[in-house]
């Protein structure tokens, strides 16, 4: 059954010596919601200019791990983390760290497109206002919308409500909103699960373009998607041996290796089950 040493096999940092390309080093020993242990023994590095995908069956805690990485879990009552999440060598769960500040450097795009009930322009400019950006807002908004491949579709309706766009456009708007402030890391929590295949493809293309500028971590339940876009993949699974459902990392590595030559039995079964 699940073994604890898996996490340490991975080619991550050893003894604090961090691979310079690793922007975030997420090392969860135990993660609790109240008395419920949701995740254990999960160590995932997120690299610059790469897409790191989290896959696994539902309930394995992959979204929980992602939400750990910009402290969204702080909003959940009873949340407690043992371990550390380092961003550029600094523990974002350190006692003096402001979670609000963390989130400004580590942006997030959610499962459901969630534009604000305001104009397209204001949606994208939101982050700029948060950060008291003094420069040319219009230029930044245009740049972000162009980066999100949305500019051509919305340039004539910047003043229309963000909610009037289609689902795929809304999600790209949310991505534009997240990248307008140029965060270091972009966390995508099943960004395509509410979208149709065409919109999904366009988001995937977008992710490939964006990795030139950001470190990207994505949670997906769609294995083909993970295979198509990701450079690194972590497979999480559920451990039910202690009577509850605790997620843990089974295997982490290059996507090619995970999908074509998985080392662990659980990974092999999961990948085969999906592809056979």
């Amino acid at each position: 059954m699940p073994t604890a040493e898996i996490a340490s096999q991975e080619p991550v940092s050893t003894n604090g010596k961090v691979d310079p390309s690793v922007v975030m080093d997420c090392n969860i020993e135990n993660l609790y919601y109240g008395s419920f242990k949701a995740v254990r023994d999960t160590r995932i590095p997120v690299q610059k200019n790469a897409i790191t995908a989290f896959i696994g069956p539902s309930g394995c805690g992959k979204s929980t791990v992602l939400r750990c990485m910009n402290r969204m879990n702080d909003l959940v009552r009873g949340f407690r983390l043992e371990g550390h999440v380092q961003f550029r060598g600094q523990d974002i769960y350190g006692p003096k760290i402001d979670p609000v500040a963390v989130r400004r450097f580590i942006g997030m795009v959610f499962q459901q497109p969630n534009p604000f009930a305001t104009s397209v322009y204001n949606n994208v400019a939101f982050g700029l206002r948060l950060n008291n950006f003094k420069g040319n807002k219009a230029a930044k908004v245009e740049e972000a919308l162009k980066s999100a491949d949305l500019w051509d579709e919305v340039k004539d309706k910047l003043n229309e409500s963000g909610l009037s766009l289609s689902g795929g456009q809304q999600q790209r708007l949310c991505i534009a909103r997240a990248i307008a402030t140029e965060p270091e890391v972009l966390l995508l929590d099943e960004p395509c699960s509410a979208l149709d295949p065409v919109a999904t493809r366009s988001i995937e293309e977008l992710m490939k373009q964006l990795k030139a500028r950001f470190a990207i971590a994505i949670v997906t339940h769609n294995l083909q998607q993970a295979q198509r876009v990701s450079d690194k993949t972590g497979f999480l699974y559920v451990d039910t041996s202690e009577g509850s459902r605790t997620g843990y990392l089974v295997e982490f590595g290059d996507s090619n290796q995970i999908f074509h030559d998985p080392k662990q039995k659980e990974t092999q079964q999961y990948i085969k089950g999906e592809f056979s």
């Binding site: 500040a101 989130r103 959610f110 969630n114 939101f126 982050g127």
Partner: peptide, 22 residues
């Protein structure tokens, strides 16, 4: 909707900014 609030918080809005801007 909770997801609008989440969107703001996820971008690093302070509580006060979330209240006034969203």
């Amino acid at each position: 909707p909770e997801r609008m609030k989440e969107a703001a918080i996820g971008m690093g809005a302070t509580d006060t900014q979330t209240v006034w801007m969203v």
